[in-house]
Write a protein that binds this DNA or RNA. Sequence first.
DNA 1: AACCCGCATGAAAACGATTACGTTGCTGCT
DNA 2: AGCAGCAACGTAATCGTTTTCATGCGGGTT
Lengths: 332, 332
Amino acid sequence: MASVSRAMNGGSGVTAATSERIHAAASRLQYVPHAAARMLITRRSNTIGALLPDLHGEFFSELIRGIDLAARARGFHLLVSSSHDSAEEAAAAMRSMQGRVDGLLILSARVDAAFLRSNLPKSLPVVLINSAVKSTAHTVLNVDNFAGASAMVQHLLQAGHASVAFIAGPQSNFDAQQRDKGYRAAMAKYAPNAPIHIVAGDFTEESGYRAGRELLAQQTRPRAVFAANDMMAVGCLTAFKEAGLHVPQDIALAGFDDIPVARYVTPPLSTVRVRIVELGRIALEQLVAQLEKTEPLPAHADTLGCEIVIRESCGASLIATSSQNILSTSHP
Amino acid sequence: MASVSRAMNGGSGVTAATSERIHAAASRLQYVPHAAARMLITRRSNTIGALLPDLHGEFFSELIRGIDLAARARGFHLLVSSSHDSAEEAAAAMRSMQGRVDGLLILSARVDAAFLRSNLPKSLPVVLINSAVKSTAHTVLNVDNFAGASAMVQHLLQAGHASVAFIAGPQSNFDAQQRDKGYRAAMAKYAPNAPIHIVAGDFTEESGYRAGRELLAQQTRPRAVFAANDMMAVGCLTAFKEAGLHVPQDIALAGFDDIPVARYVTPPLSTVRVRIVELGRIALEQLVAQLEKTEPLPAHADTLGCEIVIRESCGASLIATSSQNILSTSHP
DNA sequence: AACCCGCATGAAAACGATTACGTTGCTGCT
DNA sequence: AGCAGCAACGTAATCGTTTTCATGCGGGTT
């Protein structure tokens, strides 16, 4: 019956009395509208898809948490497909989500503009998270790795550490690249005479350990070390301890991410925190904003600020948290 | 056209030639079958729902990972709704998933048999994870908290620690109850003359810290402490360090869960590990098994074993891992 | 009193797939 | 040659909702 539909949804064009009768009957019969039939005719699923790589731990759970909370607040369901480690897997997942979702949230290092074009209908709204893609066709939401890294290096220098070395992440990783740039920029600005000192790493604890040993083996030991992520900082810390060095007295150390472990190592690790829940929330809200506009929204590129968290490992006891807020830039 | 459907799906009753033509045309036109239309007529969504409480960190991400991997392997999609902290929220989420999913995976302390009966059609297959529900109507999959806790206490006693105290979890929590029982059982069996010594906790780090102080304030200090989870063990460790005690020389310590932090505290924490990915995988597979049988499968109650992980905090350097496998019991 | 307008309501089409069923055409047997 | 049987394929019904459109009713205006 048509009035039933009207009563259950908008309610416009139905007497209060009939609406009342309908709702009573509906709850008496435990009537639940059939989602598929509704989807078929409305061409909306009220579902958004999240396509994620093979992530472990805190980052994954907090991101999903942010997305999920925001989605529920907006009345959307969340279809998750994670643990993709090849581009083909991700493509297959993308295609199989076709038609089940109204929009897609994608976090994947391997996804680029061409990939999206060939695997998705261009009508499907997409928000890219932490992606190097500079597309005018898709909205992109990044973490301000550059500002975070640069703020931490600035802090280390201003805390009196004359030389700061950097343990880099994987070269192909976008976040790692940005952090590298942040390190170089801060060095150039605040310690133009100090040498740029970079050793390789790949974001694993093991690689951080090797990098720590490599740093100690060189003839001039840096006064402070900034690792491109916390896991490497933890590995590096192990190397320093093995060598009998005291952190931060002999050498200062800082990481990036603020994973939970950072608080529990000895000494507690200074690091750069990303508000992951918020990252997820904002990504979802941008996507929903696109859905609700009929005309395609101009592509946006947003950046979520991060804050430095000073603990003991960097040798500055003051609790200084320089936090940036959301800086937003949009291009046509 | 009917042959299209036949060609795309089973393929029975279609010439190889026509099937070929159809597939060619389909890929040329980038044809993707409309999920909603298929759902409507088939009455299957190929989607399973996961209803989870407000979990943080590793446990959540690994569980989802296990579920997701298994779901993709079986061709199912995964609809997630997490971060529920009240029963009403969970109920609302359950109802809104109605008709979108073929089955439901539920992990929630607050869900009991009556709750399920009143919020879900009894035709919807459900697998309960870590639930106290003893229902003949639903399959339940639990972690063997009892055996894990009991094995750890046994280990502590046999390592020569004459007295073992226990920091309990929240009384309402099913896992906490089982771990408590495991402690008592092992004490009764392996140290019948030692006193049962329990202090309260609520699974938070803070409560572990308080429990640690409380233990030290009492006149007889236990030789070892077993905390019902790792976070409390970490808090307790802080209390011991503050009091100038050395772990494990002065007092031994063990936890439960094997969260990542356990490896990084000093000394590294002995604990009981749960294979969470596997928990998720098995839960999903049980659910799928129910879906694929036409007649309702008899309700199962399965238990996933866990293994004790010996590090330094318990004062036994031997690398003994006593692992139970899956013990399965089914009732009519 | 006649007419018109607005509003509540029901009838029917549409969405895009699956599937039961009917039709066609071919093969092979008598 | 005629007929039975079978395989391939198309027609049409179906799923449950939304939405458009027509209908009928009541009230207000002239």
